[in-house]
């Protein structure tokens, strides 16, 4: 199964729509609640990052019987130093983003904590691709 959603840079009113849709699909697929929470928290963090930092972006989600792979691709300033961006508390967010309750430098570390695999590729002044992989368990199963 493949899903795709556009993400609008700067529009905090719509931030979370894609992650909400992904959550609905995972519930329909009977994925266990703890795994759904890890997936949608990771997804929401990545979605908010695009809204907060990029001009525009999209998420492509591929779900098979064993895993979900979410690719967040944006057009934006990129990340000059990915290692530094992964340090909890490091943030380049604007005051407007902080007023929305984000920009504390917790997003990427929290994705790393929840994901089974996280890959970040970025080019300065072009954009960033964040690939999150999480293995699935069915509700009541293995």
């Amino acid at each position: 199964m493949q899903l795709q959603y556009d993400i609008e840079g700067g529009n905090f009113t719509k931030a979370g729509f894609a992650s909400s849709e992904i959550k609905k699909v995972l519930k329909q697929l009977n994925v266990d609640a703890a795994t759904i929470k890890r997936i949608v928290v990771s997804s929401y963090e990545a979605e908010v990052n695009i809204v907060a930092h990029a001009y525009k972006g999209a998420v492509t989600v591929v779900i098979d019987h064993e895993k979900i792979v979410m690719q967040y691709q944006d057009e934006g300033p990129g990340i000059p130093d990915i290692e530094q961006a992964m340090v909890a508390g490091y943030s380049t967010a604007s005051p407007e983003v902080r007023e929305m309750g984000f920009g504390a430098g917790m997003g990427l570390p929290n994705i790393h904590k929840n994901a089974d695999d996280l890959l970040i590729e970025s080019e300065v002044n072009k954009g960033t691709l964040v690939t999150i992989t999480i293995y699935l368990k069915q509700e009541g199963g293995q």
């Binding site: 905090f12 009113t13 931030a15 979370g16 992650s19 909400s20 959550k23 609640a33 929470k37 949608v40 928290v41 997804s43 929401y44 908010v48 929305m100 309750g101 984000f102």
Partner: peptide
Amino acid sequence: LANMQTIRTAEMSD
């Protein structure tokens, strides 16, 4: 914090 992201955060975090 009273904005849409408060509710979205609650949704994602169950």
